[in-house]
Design a protein around this nucleic acid. Structure first.
Lengths: 223, 223
DNA sequence: CGTCCTCTTGAGGATAGTCAATTCCAGTGG
DNA sequence: CCACTGGAATTGACTATCCTCAAGAGGACG
């Protein structure tokens, strides 16, 4: 993916990288920093759909609607590289295995979105926040080498509130409860998981296990 | 898609067509009736992720996780045809345009899921119910020929409640409010949109417009 | 004619929102 | 070096939305 991406571009925290309401001609590969796709409601509230980490490809759902409903926001200073849409077309014809992998990744994000939807519908805010922390650690720990409990987490309390669908006032309260219960610590944008088991129990979810698909096409041989 | 699907199978309303927690070997093409992917929370509550109508391919997100978190439930009597997963592999190598179309469809479902997520996080139950009705009509009207305001809707109030994440008790109340406001009528499983404009206003959403993508690969020529 | 599912209605309570005031802190410019 | 500034975090009082529990009515079907 990196071989077909454009030159790196830097953005500051809070900047809208890709705005909604337009037909898109390109995707963005997130190289460094945290981003998120955001939706603004008709009454001006913001909601963050998901957290994107380095390696994620941003802007895929915008391909399917005439005017995309989500924007992409930088949650920290970020570096992105643009991927033009023609490369996607060529990937489907020339690199079926890559295309299938991309398809698989987007299905995984959809599965995550299903979990978030269920939580939003049926779980209270404390459970949702615990789940957010659990899933964040699961995604970050592998890339940080050994299993670590410390995460450099650039999210503000407002960001977390927008992620789990509550107000920042209420987030502050339940975050204090998780801290008081000895489950997590959060200072200076450093998130520490103090009690992983307890946090899983509070979240009421199972650890995330990606599939090991046997159905992908083989790599196309050069000839 | 129909050419590679297995023989039709019938299921009665309420039956779980595809259960969660297993690695999947096949997909299901919904031929007739309404279905839905359902998630059960750890405390036994049900949540319905989305409504599936005839033509939809069920079970895609289950490809991406080792144990799929959703089941597929029949919301009415349904007819489905099985699609084995090898056909998906072959599609990616032999039919890039079809594969890209499938990719596009799944992105559209993801965009819909983003909207639902935002609503769940930020809108109250009345708004969510109005949106459900709006989106249902948008999907059903085209296939029913001319723009009709009458929809044969097999959903029970419990189903609708599970779709928008409230209890059936509360759903009953807000449904009565929408009826009292003259926006919809619902009797004998027939949903009638009495005031489309008013319903759109109550929902606070724009009409859904699918993309007209220019980036799909061409049909592979026979040679 | 009973049984089960669905729908309906009411009372009281929990979760989360709104409004408002205050503190903390990092960055900026004098 | 320090005051200024704006965002971020914190806390309290009051309110609204939605849930729980409960009881009953209507209807389909054996």
């Amino acid at each position: 993916m990196r071989s077909i991406a454009g030159p790196p571009k830097r953005y500051r925290r809070g900047v809208i990288i890709r705005s909604d309401g337009r037909q898109v001609q390109s995707l963005d590969l997130l190289v460094e920093g945290w981003a998120s796709s955001a939706v603004w409601t008709s009454d001006g509230q913001r909601h963050l759909i998901s957290v994107n980490l380095p390696g994620d490809l941003l802007g895929l759902p915008a391909l399917a609607t005439a005017d995309s409903l989500d924007s992409v926001v930088a949650l920290s200073p970020v570096v992105i590289r643009e991927v033009r849409i023609e490369h996607l077309t060529r990937m489907f014809t020339d690199q079926p295995r890559l295309a299938a992998l991309l398809f698989l990744i987007s299905q995984e994000e959809r599965a995550q979105s299903m979990e978030r939807l269920t939580l939003m519908a049926r779980a209270n805010a404390k459970t949702r926040l615990a789940t957010l922390f659990v899933r964040l650690q699961e995604r970050i720990a592998p890339s940080a080498g050994s299993a670590t409990n410390c995460i450099a987490c650039p999210l503000t309390q407002q960001d977390m509130a927008d992620l789990i669908g509550i107000t920042s006032v209420h987030l502050n309260t339940i975050l204090a409860e998780l801290k008081a219960a000895g489950l997590v610590a959060l200072d200076q944008r450093i998130l520490t998981i103090l009690d992983g088991q307890g946090l899983l129990a509070a979240a009421g979810v199972s650890p995330w296990r990606p599939a090991t698909p046997g159905w992908l096409p083989e790599i196309k041989q050069l000839h």
